[in-house]
Design a protein around this nucleic acid. Structure first.
Length: 575
RNA sequence: CGGGGCGUAGCUCAGCCUGGCUAGAGCGCUUGCUUUGGGAGCAAGAAGUCGGAGGUUCAAAUCCUCUCGCCCCGACCA
């Protein structure tokens, strides 16, 4: 393809609207243009890249027996009413009416539609398992789109659904999907971590999230490089570093702390204590009953962990000031577990065995010091704190690391959540109608591109992996006024194209500097440069963008050398 | 939805506080000549409802009110 005939509107200056790297580069390199908040047009370069990513996904889905569908984006209200999600989805769902006044919506996901097909067409356990997928546009009216393609309102998603008669069969397909996902991200050249994810309010059995590691990621990922433990911060547990305590007095001592209401204030108060020698005490209302939750002063309560602890059905929230006083006899800021009776007390694991601690006295303007856990109060030990930087792996004890991640995929054992509510049953061996057991598996296509850019760029622009770059090679004619250069470039381009390689011939009559800058910006991994000087020696230059290395190669060897370079730089699966 | 910021030429921005000449610059674009290995030089030229509406004023890009849009932080995120 010739650049002169291709629409690649690069920008010399940084667009003011963009802050994150991938957003800036996607705009500057002429990949995308914004239509409205969180809605983008994909120009030819982005489209080529998205198609390459889609094709990798398609190949890996087909490889594990997935069958490609194409489901509608426009759905009738009734289907979503049946699953109960017409209500649940709330403002995140785009809704509209057809000319007859019927309620419709734009699909955020396709469990309802696919389950509808399954219940009408699947009759017998003999037809299962099935894995169905599509690559389709999804709509979500995000409260706050951001970061270019990182969080948008319209995007492409590969979503797959599997149907089973047994959990064992689901487990098997889930494992296959897990491996397929790993292969997909490997082939796209992403650095990512697969982590256990919170199954959220929907219940379900297992879920894993695949997060690309990027600086502007929305999620915090806890990862142990030693044993491979990985979890969302919401799901993660860890071992806190041991704190050496001084010996405690025989019994705790109450002391006045006028006006002290915060951990930080108590740290600097004479006779106070450092944050990690304090016990932070919070009151939650669980099904309208107060429950005490104690964590170390410098730790943060993980409400997702509390939700799991209290159970999916329980309604809980932080107690209001009035409820706190009623339960404890003091206000927040002066609370502690010592002397409390009749209340459930949850104590974070990091407090186990601690001595000589300081906490609230349950009397305003008073605290207690010299508190020994298990001597002066007792509770049930649970990990209810968020993992902190510097903690140790719960499995192997090695230091854990925390990363920012962008979710690029999630796999989920749904169970019978949809088959039950939508009455999608098959007959089993005994002739009984049983709800199909389901799994669902999603990948955000454009997020892969955005994450790849976040992970691979320099001050000059993108550096895309060969597998997802819009073109594998760019052939740059330094001086279009030199017929020799043009002829040589065209011969090389033709040869490479004949070998099935995507080549962009930069045949613009521009200054060399402009062309080199543009070539770098759009992230093509390999460049072949035809300039008059080297051409006189019968040579062209091959430049590897990622390594910033170049070699001069005889003209008739260029095609072979390019092919070899492409092969060696194509990301491989780790299997 | 709360907090903050920004809307002036295709892009990046100045001008606004303290109202007043014909609304500017750089880049890009068009034409011509020169130039050709890292965002060229000279010359000529085209291009702006100053986001929108209303108001104040002799006079509004500039002051006031409302409104729309976009970005960032937070809340939210099957």
């Amino acid at each position: 393809m010739r650049w002169s005939e291709t629409f690649i509107p690069t920008l010399r200056e940084m667009p003011a609207e963009a802050e994150t790297i991938s957003h800036q580069l996607l705009l500057r390199a002429g990949y995308i243009r914004q239509v409205a908040a969180g809605i983008y047009s994909y120009l030819p370069l982005a489209q080529r890249s998205v198609l390459k990513i889609s094709q990798i996904i398609r190949e890996e889905m087909n490889r594990i027996g997935g069958q490609e569908f194409f489901l509608p984006v426009l759905h009738p209200r009734e289907l979503w009413e049946e699953s109960g999600r017409w209500e649940i989805m709330g403002d995140n769902m785009f809704r509209l009416k057809d000319r007859a006044g019927r309620d419709m919506c734009l699909g955020m996901t396709h469990e309802e539609v696919i389950t509808d097909i399954a219940r009408h067409e699947l009759r017998s356990y003999k037809q299962l398992p099935q894995t169905w997928y599509q690559i389709q546009t999804k709509f979500r009216d995000e409260a706050r789109p951001k970061g270019g393609l990182l969080r948008v309102r319209q995007f492409t998603m590969k979503d797959a659904y599997s149907f089973h008669t047994s959990w064992e069969s689901l487990d098997e397909t889930y494992q296959q999907q897990y491996r397929a996902y790993s292969r997909i991200y490997d082939r796209c050249g992403l650095r990512y971590i697969a982590v256990k994810a919170d199954t959220g309010a929907m219940g379900g059995k297992d879920s894993h999230e695949f997060s690309a590691l990027i600086d502007v990621g929305e999620d915090l990922i806890v990862h142990c490089e030693h044993c491979g433990y990985g979890a969302n911060r919401e799901m993660a547990i860890s071992r806190a570093p041991v704190v050496d305590d001084q010996p405690a007095p025989d019994r705790p001592e109450k002391f006045p702390t006028p006006g002290i209401r915060t951990i930080a204030a108590l740290e600097t108060f004479p006779g106070g204590a450092e944050a990690h020698r304090q016990i932070k005490t919070l009151v939650y209302m669980v099904d309208e009953q107060p429950v005490l939750v104690c964590v170390r002063g410098d730790h943060t309560v993980n409400e997702a962990a509390l939700a799991r602890l209290f159970g999916a059905e329980a309604r809980f929230y932080p107690a209001h000031p009035g409820q706190i006083v009623a339960a404890m006899g003091a206000n927040a800021g002066s609370l502690g577990p010592v002397g409390v009776s009749g209340l459930r007390i949850v104590v974070d694991e990091a407090l186990r065995g601690r001595k000589n601690m300081t906490t609230g006295a349950n009397e305003d303007d008073f605290h207690i010091r010299g508190v020994v856990v298990d001597r002066d109060f007792k509770g049930e030990y649970q990990q209810v704190r968020l993992v902190e930087e510097g903690d140790f792996c719960i499995n192997c004890g090695k230091p854990i690391r925390m990363w920012k991640g962008l979710e690029v995929g999630q796999i989920f054992k749904l169970g019978v959540r949809y088959s039950q509510t939508m009455k999608a049953t098959v007959l089993n061996e005994k002739g009984e109608a049983v709800p199909m057991i389901m799994g669902c598996y999603g990948i955000g296509v454009e997020r892969i591109l955005a994450a790849a850019i976040e992970q691979n760029h320099d001050e000059n622009g993108m550096i895309l992996p060969v597998s997802i770059a819009p073109f594998s090679v760019i052939v740059n004619v330094v001086n279009m006024g030199d017929p020799e250069s043009v002829r040589a470039a065209e011969r090389i381009t033709t040869a490479l194209e004949a070998a099935g390689i995507d080549v962009l011939l930069d045949d613009r009559d521009e200054r060399p500097g402009v062309k080199f800058k543009d070539n770098d910006l759009i992230g093509i991994p390999l460049r072949v440069t035809l300039g008059p000087k080297k051409l006189k020696e019968g040579k062209a230059e091959i430049y590897i963008r990622a390594k910033r290395e170049s070699v001069d190669v005889a003209l008739d060897e260029v095609a072979a050398r390019v092919q070899a370079a492409l092969e060696s730089s194509t990301p491989q699966t780790k299997e």
